[in-house]
Design a protein around this nucleic acid. Structure first.
Lengths: 184, 184
DNA sequence: TCTTAACATGTAAACAATGACATAAAGGTA
DNA sequence: TACCTTTATGTCATTGTTTACATGTTAAGA
């Protein structure tokens, strides 16, 4: 999956691993997280495959940078991936639910503590979504492009999902905390 | 993660890989999926670790079965895992959102088709949750145990999450489909 | 001046998950 | 009888992800 995220961003403009890392962190990272270690190694693999080329800039001042550029083959791969639709629903992986499922013998207070920590974390995430909601996302290189509106639209749709998800999560946590509290 | 699911189930009673597969499929599988290949290999690894023991039954009729039993070490590992709470929020992985994020240049009709397929799939999942909502989950071996109520309670809480998740997903899909439809 | 944060790039080992291949018996049905 | 589904168990190669280790610079603030 990460490889298509990288191709997707490099389709806008050439970038370094670090650029990609920061962009991912505050956009797609909300629904597909990646560590820098995975980003750098995946970029190398994509270069080997011929989907990217890279150029090393030995910067006058500051650390070196390796900039990656999408090749035609890489662009094809991206478009091919986008063309074939998903035909299955996502398989969610919710660790907290696994833990809760096996919490029958756990101490009630302990489970409540855990859920309250989760509540705070999700509250935080919700606030993040509400903050970035107002910001413009489209990369500078595209600002003037007439397609920028559509980019912005899809970005906002993913944000909206995140917002709904966190709202749902919080409502569920509140109901669950209350119900456990009421348990004998 | 899967290893704790296996330990969790084997904490109820000894079971074979196939038993675990079917149980997972209609309970924890809703929020943590696993293929049988992973289940069998993980069981072997857990046995090597000393968390499980296994016994092969060369059945009179029908295929052989290998039944796994939780050891004390295994039970300790399970309890230890349950004792230390999660201190981070889950990192969701939503492939559809990644695809949507990079859909700025895709054909509008094509994106709509994909979302409508997803709508049908999530509608189906919602119905699954509504169907199993009514069923009793607690394994027979525990029916008479006074703790069965609590088991049932936590199971229902996870179902409730699934239900809310699918409701949220559908509402978001509907809003998104409508908005894309209205796009120039 | 010292420390910390941000910038910048990587490697390596371990672990987790997927997808394909492989086998075989039982029971139902067309 | 032939075929299909369910039961039942596994291997293997590959891919994907996480965690820890490793290094070095620049700019800002205490």
């Amino acid at each position: 999956m990460l490889k298509y995220i990288l191709l997707g961003f490099l389709n806008y403009q050439p970038m370094t691993g670090y650029d990609l890392k920061t962009r991912i962190d505050d956009s797609t990272g909300h629904f597909w997280h990646a560590y820098h270690s995975q980003i750098y190694t995946t970029l190398r693999k994509l270069e080997e495959k011929g989907w990217l080329t890279s150029e090393l800039f030995e910067d006058e001042a500051g650390p070196n940078k390796r900039e990656y550029t999408l090749t035609d083959t890489g662009r094809d791969a991206l478009h091919k991936w986008l063309r074939k639709s998903m035909t299955e629903a996502n398989r969610p992986k919710e660790e907290l639910l696994v833990r809760l499922f096996f919490s029958g013998q756990r101490d009630k207070a302990h489970v409540l503590d855990e859920l309250r920590v989760q509540r705070a974390l999700h509250q935080q995430k919700l606030m993040v979504y509400e903050t970035i909601k107002l910001e413009n996302h489209v990369p500078e290189a595209m600002q003037d492009d007439p397609r920028a509106d559509r980019e912005q639209f899809f970005w906002e749709r993913t944000l909206n999902f995140g917002h709904r998800y966190e709202m749902m999560y919080l409502a569920w946590l509140d109901e669950t905390i209350e119900a456990i509290d009421a348990l004998p």
